[in-house]
């Protein structure tokens, strides 16, 4: 929740006005954590410690962290195949995340799910998803529960630009709107669904324009600007909490890495990638905090060092953790009966 709603100097970015310095420093820390976590995961993958594939969100950290600023642990999120950032932003434990990557029993899914299925139910993260668009109707269901049960919780539904062409997206937005549910649809438009650009896949210029078809507000923001993201999402969260229904927010951002481990990057240029790297959301956040006297170079250096250590410890925990027992391969298919 924002710490202050006082309308101070309009030239000061929203995030600086709305949040206490500790919250902002924590947000920057989470952004660094996501970046280092993913670099660590990439490194572990290259060394053959991780099975399967993974989808890195490096370059998109402001969207994940910014969109979770106004949420409490009671609020829910649904995430995607590119979900490490969302998971960290919602407060996950890095050790359990790495353990999942390494297929260990101590991982979030006890080694059954891997990178693409990480969930952290205690913190309100209902899970990444291997199915593009799979989480969107689920988010609407979570919002329906919150409304019927009167919990006051909201759900932030993350999905990519590619997902906006799935039927599930359209069906889900329509239902959220007719039932006025407390859900915020956050489209992370990183300009490509795998190799297919939004220009080639999507009939509208801005995905936010699709909100009009479902009678909800739609807003397109610079997804690499932490403050812009929080400003848009916080307003949508407030609307949702007030019973005014859903919103659609489009965070325009960019993934620096390939789609997954098999990407030859033939559909975009090195120049394009370099241009977006200039707009590094973490560097911009750090600069903003420095400009407003919230931290300084020394503070940032300490933060980075601390994050580095946290990632190392998480990897060490994961490496030392036990693997699942083969006999348990089919455990958890059904819920065990509990004696009445």
């Amino acid at each position: 929740m924002p710490d202050s709603t006082v309308a101070a100097d309009r030239n000061v970015p929203y995030a600086i006005r709305a949040y206490a310095p500790e919250r902002l420093i924590d947000a920057l820390r989470k952004m660094y954590l996501i970046r280092r976590f993913e670099e660590g995961a990439e490194d572990s993958y290259t060394r053959g410690l991780i099975h399967g594939t993974m989808h890195l969100s490096i370059g998109q950290e402001a969207s994940a962290v910014g969109a979770c600023m106004a949420l409490t642990d009671d609020d829910k999120i649904t995430s995607t195949h590119r979900g490490h950032g969302h998971c960290v932003a919602k407060g996950a434990d890095l050790g359990k995340m790495f353990a999942e990557f390494f297929g260990k029993e101590t991982g979030y899914c006890r080694g059954r799910g891997g990178s693409m299925h990480i969930a952290d139910v205690e913190k309100g993260n209902l899970g990444a998803n291997g199915i593009v668009g799979g989480g969107i109707p689920i988010a609407v269901g979570a919002a329906l529960s919150a409304k019927r049960l009167g919990t006051g919780a909201v759900t932030v539904c993350f999905f990519g630009d590619g997902a906006n062409n799935e039927g599930a997206f359209h069906e889900a937005l329509n239902m959220a709107s007719i039932w006025k549910l407390p859900v915020i649809f956050v489209c992370e438009n990183n300009r490509y669904g795998m190799s297919t650009s939004t220009e080639r896949s999507t009939a509208v210029k801005s995905i936010a324009d699709r909100a009009a078809a479902y009678s909800m507000p739609g807003e397109r923001v610079d997804g690499n600007d932490f403050s812009a993201v929080t400003e848009a999402v916080d307003a949508a969260v407030a609307r949702a909490r007030n019973g005014e229904g859903p919103s659609l927010i489009e965070n325009v951002t960019y993934r620096w890495r390939g789609h997954s481990k098999s990407d030859r990057n033939r559909y975009r240029t090195k120049e394009e990638i370099a241009q977006w790297q200039e707009r590094d959301p973490i560097a911009r956040m750090a600069a903003m905090l420095k400009e407003h006297g919230i931290t300084d170079d020394e503070g940032i250096a300490a933060l980075e060092k601390d994050v580095e250590q946290a990632v190392e410890e998480a990897i060490a925990f994961a490496k030392d953790s036990p693997v699942p027992r083969i006999e348990d391969a089919t455990r958890d298919v059904h819920t065990p009966k509990v004696a009445a």
Binding site: E100, K104, G111, R112, G113, P324, I326, D328, A329, V333
Partner: peptide, 16 residues
């Protein structure tokens, strides 16, 4: 195949 979804862990994956 075993009566379960396919697990991620490589040893479990082979086992099912």
């Amino acid at each position: 195949g075993a009566e379960s979804p396919i697990p991620y862990n490589p040893e479990l994956e082979k086992a099912v």
